[in-house]
């Protein structure tokens, strides 16, 4: 027997969350809740395990294929378990003009990882413009936003991770 997907507490949160989400849409449009429902699943499990996507599809009266299609289209969804810390670094033009490429190299060196590689502890990757162009360079750690970065600030952020 494989382990159950959710603990009792997670199951409660999932059920309540799905019920709330479904109340936001017309009764014949349950599948519209796909993005928020997958987000809910990911918030509980840190990623989207296949059996979780199956459950979401079932609750939304949709299909597993539809859930996969959405899960693989949007970059914030993890269909593979990510490292404990997902670090998204903006390297688009406005940040690049303020040193983002150098910041990414600095992070690679400090963390001993390569951008795009998903390790057990860190998943460092380049991301697209984070709407922080006037406060560049910037990055997000597990979706928490950090801007106007300097070496001192990056060092302080990394210190909190270890």
């Amino acid at each position: 027997m494989s382990e159950p997907l959710f603990t009792a507490d997670e199951q409660k949160k999932f059920d309540a969350g799905i019920a709330e989400l479904l109340s936001h849409y017309p009764p014949d449009r349950k599948s519209a809740a796909m993005l928020p429902a997958l987000r809910l699943l990911q918030s509980l499990k840190t990623w989207l395990p296949p059996e979780g996507m199956q459950l979401v599809a079932q609750r939304l009266e949709s299909t597993v294929e539809a859930a996969y299609e959405v899960a693989t289209f949007y970059v914030m969804f993890h269909t593979k378990k990510p490292g404990t810390y997902v670090i998204d670094v903006c390297t688009n033009l406005a940040c690049a003009l303020r040193g983002a490429e150098g910041m990414l190299a600095y992070l690679e060196q400090k963390l001993g990882t390569k951008a795009g590689e998903n390790g057990e502890k860190y998943f460092l990757r380049e991301t697209e413009c984070l709407a922080s162009c006037g406060t560049a360079p910037c990055l997000q750690i597990n979706e928490d936003h950090h801007e106007n970065l300097t070496k001192v600030k990056v060092d302080a952020l990394l210190e909190k991770l270890s």
């Binding site: 003009l97 303020r98 040193g99 983002a100 150098g102 600095y106 360079p137």
Partner: peptide, 9 residues
Amino acid sequence: PWGVFGEFK
């Protein structure tokens, strides 16, 4: 290639 700004060259 990125001009003058930032500490991270």
